[in-house]
Design a binder for these strands. Structure first.
Lengths: 145, 145
DNA sequence: TTACTCTTGTCAACTAGTTAACTCTCTATC
DNA sequence: GATAGAGAGTTAACTAGTTGACAAGAGTAA
């Protein structure tokens, strides 16, 4: 009972952080947070529908339905993989790339300002704790029936 | 860049925790995590459609659409507020109450087992940190346009 | 070759959110 | 008493997910 409340606190924290980011993106870039995530996942390089889904933690079907929206706006390109007739590769256009860099920078900046009165070492410790808990959770995810 | 990754770590952590809870609920109670949350919000007492929406951080419309599902399964009761002809009050039936208590207990137990090798004082410190960050975020949520 | 199987993407039907427009009820004021 | 708001809930149309069924290409074994 006492312990489980940690998960509620975590959920609230994430929800506040994400809606803050969403508000900034909507106000300045007419874009939602989930659109930002879609593009950001392509920053390291082209991905297939399935690959992007894995990166966003979403099914291939979900990616397949959203992709045309970004293509129509010239933010991504969808081209078939020359080495595999079925596979589609999604990559950022230069417009998409510019948008990602700019929005990512804006969000970083907002985050830094928001926490300007925290010691950056405090944040580092906090982040390390988060990672420790996360890594702990990644081991043996058995569900007892 | 470095800082903002905290938000990614937080998102992953929450997602892992929630799907773990979801898996337990599905396996043992044939129930989803979001159904659990709906019922748990009514544990402290009856709420209106709007009140439950606020508690779940969801619009009144969303609650209004889902409520009949729970009523059909005899987990909640929907009765109009005697003091306001329009207002509907949602409350747990005894079946609903039993289910909530049982599932909440199961999730707590699973959480405790999962973290049995953490010092409980470590968890308390971690929770306190989470709350500190959350409270910090709740102040002045201005969005610069 | 042909036939299996795996990978990849798409489609249909469903769930759970959203906003906007609407209806109903109560209250305050003229 | 009439009426104008404010508060509460429902509905329609939309977005973004899910699963399951399917199609089509690539690789492998006979």
């Amino acid at each position: 009972m006492e312990e489980a409340k940690i998960t509620f606190t975590l959920n609230r924290l994430v929800s506040v952080l994400n809606s803050h980011a969403d508000a900034i993106l909507r106000a300045r870039y007419d874009m939602t947070f989930s659109q930002f995530l879609f593009l950001v996942a392509l920053r390291p390089g082209p991905l297939s529908m399935t690959g992007l889904g894995a990166s966003l933690d979403v099914t291939t079907a979900a990616v397949s339905k959203r992709a045309p929206w970004f293509e129509e706006r010239n933010l991504i390109r969808i081209h078939s993989d020359p080495r595999h007739g079925r596979k589609q590769l999604l990559s950022l256009t230069s417009k998409g790339q510019r948008l990602v860099e700019e929005t990512a920078e804006a969000l970083d900046q907002a985050f830094i300002e928001r926490f300007s009165d925290f010691e950056s070492s405090d944040l580092a410790v906090f982040h390390a704790d988060l990672n420790r808990v996360l890594e702990h959770l990644m081991t043996i995810p058995k569900v007892t029936t």
